[in-house]
Design a protein around this nucleic acid. Structure first.
Lengths: 243, 243
DNA sequence: CGGCAAATTGACACATCTCAAAGCCTGTGG
DNA sequence: CCACAGGCTTTGAGATGTGTCAATTTGCCG
């Protein structure tokens, strides 16, 4: 019913919310929906009247390749607290779809409420803008990882990022988290073949850095894993400052 | 002196600017600066008081790799009309630097003027936001290209994108443009070794799709090149609509 | 003309892909 | 409780893509 506390925590980690900002956020009317694994949350191309926020589970931005309908590329993952398709509010339409990875619960916010925020709450508007810029910074980091890391180091980087983001909103701790991704989906994310992903997973296991059974991931050696991935969380921009 | 017409053209291609928006843009005070090839336009990490708009030339977002000071990854290119580091206005600081590729001329806009826009010009604010979201869409497309295209097709995609963006603001036409990139820099962009980039360039030349001499690129066979790259410009979101 | 940086080429090593097959887990029906 | 089916994971082997190193050529500029 009420807007997810995850998103408020996401913002408060980066800036101070005034009483007005906070009450405007809490006054948002939202529609709660759940999705089964693989279901489309936001379809491609359609101009939507609402944007969605992650409440529970994991979702992915999925790009269909032209002329190769069986192939796709995943360009982003979203965790609880992420305001996933704010893009759809400002742009003409999404060039990709958002799909559920594992079971997902989201809250939809209508665009007329977002218009109201941008017309009357400039500080809050900058914070929404910030959220989309952090997504862009994550995209850049994926580009850096793709260009500079090979297989298991690349996978290690993904695991470090997801854990850090989940931990930041209180959705994971103790170096454990749930990652309901098939190896085929991991391959769509990392740009490898499923077979190669399998070897990367085994490599990290053999090095004693992680355990991964079903959807349950545990990072046994954070120092080793983040070192291998050359992971540096500053791009997630979790610095507390006035914006 | 006056704000670059390129940026206004960039916006007008996507939405209608009201008289107020237009006069606010034209009233911006800017500082004009030029940079030699390789110079740093926006340094990493520093919290800046101004953001820069491309007026002439080409610039790149350059990521230094931790522990490997001689290596870098380029995650974006910017052409005339691009408002390059709006990110620095909203975020705590850039995790990368912006460097000149070839000779560059930019206009700096102070952040207090951007604050004024976000406080008093909500529609213009959404358009600035849109500009950063288009950058993010370009990042995603680079991720898709990196995951799904090999060498010469990947290079072809870059050429199609840059030409389309230059053409959209009137900075190039007739399938010719200037791309003052060294093959070593192309390698930093595509995530290949310089030798492999060389082979990709030769391949496109041998197929009769392009000529490339010094900084001058000419696309001889747009259909073939964009087909090889599976290039589809819709992600550049150049649809005219109200936002 | 000489010097330097960039572009180009060749040979070989390593990374990753494809195809094929085997092993594992889980849900279902007998 | 067992047998089976189906999807996912794991493994192996050979083909293709890409990186590294070394050397040569080209083009620009003093």
């Amino acid at each position: 019913m009420a807007i997810t506390d995850y998103f408020i925590r996401y913002l408060q980690r980066r800036d101070t919310l005034s009483a007005e900002d906070l009450s405007r956020l809490r006054a948002l009317r939202t529609e709660n929906e759940t999705f089964a694994p693989g279901e489309v949350i936001v379809p491609v191309d359609r101009i939507a009247q609402r944007s969605c926020m992650m409440l529970r589970g994991l979702s992915a931005r999925s790009h269909q390749l032209v002329g190769r309908p069986e192939e796709r590329v995943i360009t982003a993952l979203h965790v609880p607290g992420d305001f996933v398709d704010l893009h759809g509010f400002v742009l003409a339409g999404l060039e990709h779809s958002v799909v559920a990875v594992g079971p997902v619960e989201v809250e939809f916010v209508s665009h007329d409420q977002l218009i109201d925020i941008t017309e009357n709450f400039p500080h809050l508007t900058r914070l929404l803008w910030m959220a989309t810029l952090i997504d862009a910074a994550v995209h850049r980091q994926w580009l850096v990882a793709a260009a500079s890391l090979r297989s298991s180091a690349h996978l290690a980087h993904l695991l470090c990022e997801i854990y850090t983001r989940l931990n930041a909103v209180g959705a994971a701790g103790d170096h454990r988290f749930s990652l309901p991704l098939l190896q085929r989906e991991l391959a769509d994310i990392l740009g490898y073949s499923p077979i190669h992903v399998n070897r990367a997973v085994r490599d990290l296991r053999d090095r004693g850095m992680i355990t991964w059974s079903g959807a349950d991931v545990k990072i046994l050696d954070w120092t080793g894993l983040s070192g291998l991935a050359r992971f540096d969380a500053t791009y997630l921009d979790m610095e507390q400052m006035s914006r």
